[in-house]
Amino acid sequence: MHLILFLVFAGFCLAGAINLLLQGHPINSALSLIVVMTSLAVLYLLLGAEFLAIAQVIVYAGAIMVLFTFVVMLLNAGREERTMGSRVGGVVGFPAVVAILAMIAIVILHMQGLGVARLSDGITSTAELSAVLFTKLLLPFEVTSVLILIAILGAVALAGHDGSKAEERKGEQ
């Protein structure tokens, strides 16, 4: 049962990812990315990571991709133009990606002492996950959140700064 679900959703995931690259229109690519992310969420769920799965759906498929489509709609981006450079990118890029992924896979497969996760493993409850996050991994967890906070502050500062400068310029004129 687990294996069938894994094959189905891994297939969805790959198909979405390939479709993302092949589509000419940005909105189709964005929608394919949503398919990739939701099927990844199902794969997480199969591995027993329930909170990670639903966080993937809420945060990535729900919030971040809404912003992507929002931008596509706002800019009214059309079909992308094919230039000489993009053709070269296609010819060189695909083999390069395959090579890099193969290298990463080899390194990971040869690494010792990695934990093992099976498809039929039990569900790790949200309580267990948070217990680990707030005890063993407290420092990295908090540092990451501070990092995101800094990014937010930076974005606000950039947006606000631009606005005030525009007003100054108006005043000068």
Partner: peptide, 15 residues
């Protein structure tokens, strides 16, 4: 999560 996916219905309809 399901509600947050539901917004695509509206967004895509409009676009």
């Amino acid at each position: 999560g399901v509600t947050s996916i539901g917004v695509y219905g509206i967004a895509l309809a409009g676009w």
